Simulated assay, not measured.
Amino acid sequence: MYKLFARPGWGSVLAEAQLAWYGLPFEVEDLGDLFTSEEARQRLATVNPLAQIPTLVLPDGRVMTESAAITLYLADVTGRHDLVPEARAPERPEFLRWLVFMVANIYPTFTYADLPERFVPGVDAQKAFRVNVDTYAQRLWAQMDGAAGQPWFLGARFSAIDIFIAAMTQWRPKRPWFAGACPRLHAIAEGVDALPPLAEVWRRNYPPE
């Protein structure tokens, strides 16, 4: 049994969706708001000193963190290639490039904008910083949209990148912005939304308003 420390709608959904896709046995320990709950941060810090999610405890008790690392690990441990192209697959270089692009460039912008006080002193400067970070993130998304294939990011080949797109387009600036500014990514996200193996994950993390 895998154990996933999670918060509905947060970055833990990236790992949760893959665990569900592979049909791996897992339990979810829902944490409180890590931004406001010291108790939640301390509970998570016992297994991950950075107190960040996703944090995945493997069946043997070892801890995995970092979304891209978890993605590659789960493909290795299941011996499957439906979410991660195998080493010699022609799509492998593009997959690795854009997977790391998302986690190394886009994902951190949420931390910067959500917690500007970590990086910039002064309320006014923090507000401006958040606006600048969100604008920069939109430029990164536009770059991805220009590289996206159809119906999936890698073209005919479905992958974990499509799961990441479906989850992360639910976050700021959210789906309506993507529909107008990044239509390829929006179409990919809607396609992933409709996949039955992930339906319960999306209901748990993004319940209808």
Score class of each variant (00 low, 15 high):
A40S: 13
A40M: 02
A40H: 00
R41S: 06
Q42F: 06
R43H: 11
R43V: 00
L44V: 03
L44K: 00
L44H: 00
L44S: 03
L44A: 03
A45G: 12
A45D: 08
A45L: 01
T46Q: 14
T46R: 15
V47I: 09
N48Q: 04
P49Q: 06
P49K: 07
L50T: 09
L50F: 13
L50W: 08
A51F: 02
A51L: 03
A51V: 02
Q52M: 12
I53F: 00
I53C: 12
P54R: 13
P54W: 12
P54M: 01
T55N: 12
T55Y: 09
T55E: 10
V57W: 05
V57M: 12
L58D: 05
P59I: 11
P59R: 07
P59A: 11
P59G: 10
D60Q: 12
G61Q: 14
G61C: 02
G61A: 03
R62C: 05
R62W: 06
R62G: 07
M64P: 01
T65C: 08
T65Q: 06
E66K: 14
S67P: 00
S67C: 11
A68Q: 06
A69M: 04
A69V: 09
I70V: 03
T71L: 06
T71E: 04
T71H: 01
T71I: 06
L72H: 10
L72K: 06
Y73H: 10
Y73R: 10
Y73F: 09
L74H: 02
D76Y: 10
D76K: 13
V77P: 07
T78Q: 02
T78W: 08
T78M: 11
T78L: 15
G79E: 10
R80S: 15
H81A: 15
H81G: 13
H81E: 15
D82Y: 12
D82L: 11
D82S: 12
L83G: 03
L83P: 13
L83F: 14
V84P: 10
V84W: 04
V84Q: 10
E86N: 11
E86Y: 13
